[in-house]
Structures are given as structure tokens and as C-alpha cells.
Simulated scan of single mutants.
Amino acid sequence: MAAVSRDAAHRFSKHPVVQVRLVAGLGVQDDAHAGPTVQHRSRVAVDPLQPNLRQVHLIPAELLSGLAAIGYDIAPGQLGENVLTIGVDLMCLPRATRLGLGEHAVVELTGLRNPCRQIDEFRPGLLREVVGRAADGSVVRRAGVMAVVITSGIVRPGDAVAVQLPTGPHVALDRV
């Protein structure tokens, strides 16, 4: 991993830290989005009792590198991610893939982040770089993946990421 971040307040960006503690069933300790039920304000307004399928937000560092190449200088945590990975093609993994993070923590992918206009408020024009259309007209989201915490543990920059694909048919990630 390249970086880990958290923020106790509901802000767009998070603060890089030396480590985060992932708590099973809750998310990132001391992060505004931790909890067994949905914590994202727009989703709380719809149904505050729905399960929190967005406990941990992961983004590949390669996305930040690609954005930098077209003029968007974005530091770790600035897109609101908790975990910045290196060398894992997160966007192509199927739903229910488990990622071992560090020595003990395990998260399970639930879906794709669905970026909103806040991303353009952060950097004008950035939304069109992380959401586009495929040749068939379908929406392509590149702003990271969401996960729930299965096994608690401490996660630090430099920790390894182990990918465990689900058994049975693979289901593509969709917005969550």
C-alpha cells in the first residue's frame, strides 16, 4: 500500500496517517464513514438503516499517476480514500473479492465508488476523468472501490495486499 487515510469529520478529503485500524463490521476506526449502517450523508437521507457497504474506500495509486499525467496533482487521501494500493487492478476485481491488508485485516469488495459533483468542486473537470462511457454507452467508473471489513487489523503504508477471488461465478463490481 502506498498510503492510508482517515478523517473523523464528513469532508471530501481525508488525512494521511501512519496507520489505520480496520474494525470488523464497522470500517476505519475514527473515520466519519465507519459504522454498521450507512454513513454517507446522501444515503442516510434516503434510509439511515441500510447496511454500510462503503466502510472502506480503496483507490489504486495508478489512478493518481494517470491523473497527474493530465495535469491533476492529487495527493493521497485527497479523493477521500482510506487505502491507496499499488499494483492491484482494483477496478477489474469481482464483487466479494477479499483483500488481505497487512498482517491480519481482511476486507471484502462490495462495489464501485459512484463519484458525484463534489469531485468537480474539489478539482474542476475531474469528474469527467473518473467517470466516462464505454463504447457500448455503459458508464465506466474509475474512482475506486468500496469494501466492508471482515477481519480487524492494523494497516500501514508499505503493507502487502493479498487478493483472494471468490469461488463460483464472478460478478462484476457495480456502483454501491
Results as ranks from 00 to 15, higher is better:
71 G>Q: 12
70 I>M: 07
45 A>T: 05
42 S>L: 10
83 V>N: 12
26 L>Y: 15
70 I>V: 14
40 H>Y: 15
54 R>Y: 06
39 Q>T: 01
59 I>R: 13
47 D>Y: 08
40 H>E: 12
52 N>Q: 04
29 Q>N: 00
38 V>Y: 03
71 G>I: 13
48 P>W: 09
27 G>T: 12
78 Q>P: 06
76 P>F: 00
55 Q>L: 05
60 P>V: 11
79 L>A: 11
50 Q>F: 08
55 Q>I: 05
42 S>I: 13
45 A>Y: 08
47 D>W: 09
57 H>Y: 14
64 L>C: 04
80 G>I: 01
49 L>Y: 12
29 Q>I: 00
59 I>G: 08
31 D>I: 05
51 P>W: 02
41 R>K: 15
55 Q>H: 05
39 Q>W: 01
65 S>Y: 00
59 I>S: 08
52 N>I: 01
60 P>T: 09
43 R>A: 08
60 P>W: 12
45 A>Q: 11
56 V>N: 05
28 V>S: 15
47 D>T: 10
46 V>G: 02
81 E>R: 07
59 I>D: 07
33 H>N: 13
44 V>H: 02
76 P>T: 01
33 H>S: 07
62 E>L: 01
42 S>M: 09
61 A>I: 00
59 I>V: 12
35 G>F: 02
59 I>W: 12
51 P>A: 02
65 S>W: 00
42 S>Q: 09
57 H>F: 10
82 N>A: 04
28 V>Y: 10
82 N>L: 04
64 L>R: 07
51 P>V: 02
56 V>C: 03
79 L>G: 11
49 L>D: 15
55 Q>A: 07
77 G>A: 02
42 S>A: 14
50 Q>I: 10
58 L>Y: 12
46 V>N: 03
63 L>G: 09
75 A>E: 10
58 L>R: 10
30 D>K: 15
42 S>C: 05
35 G>Q: 05
53 L>R: 15
31 D>F: 04
43 R>I: 01
53 L>S: 11
61 A>G: 03
73 D>S: 10
76 P>N: 00
60 P>Q: 15
71 G>W: 15
56 V>T: 05
37 T>W: 06
36 P>Y: 09
51 P>T: 04
80 G>T: 01
67 L>C: 14
67 L>F: 10
43 R>F: 11
46 V>F: 13
68 A>V: 02
39 Q>M: 03
38 V>K: 07
35 G>A: 03
64 L>W: 03
33 H>G: 04
73 D>L: 13
38 V>P: 02
59 I>P: 08
34 A>E: 15
78 Q>F: 12
49 L>E: 14
66 G>R: 15
71 G>M: 08
63 L>D: 11
73 D>R: 15
47 D>K: 13
33 H>D: 06
79 L>F: 12
36 P>I: 06
65 S>K: 00
28 V>A: 13
70 I>C: 07
38 V>C: 04
75 A>S: 07
49 L>K: 14
34 A>W: 13
45 A>V: 06
61 A>P: 00
82 N>P: 03
80 G>S: 01
81 E>L: 10
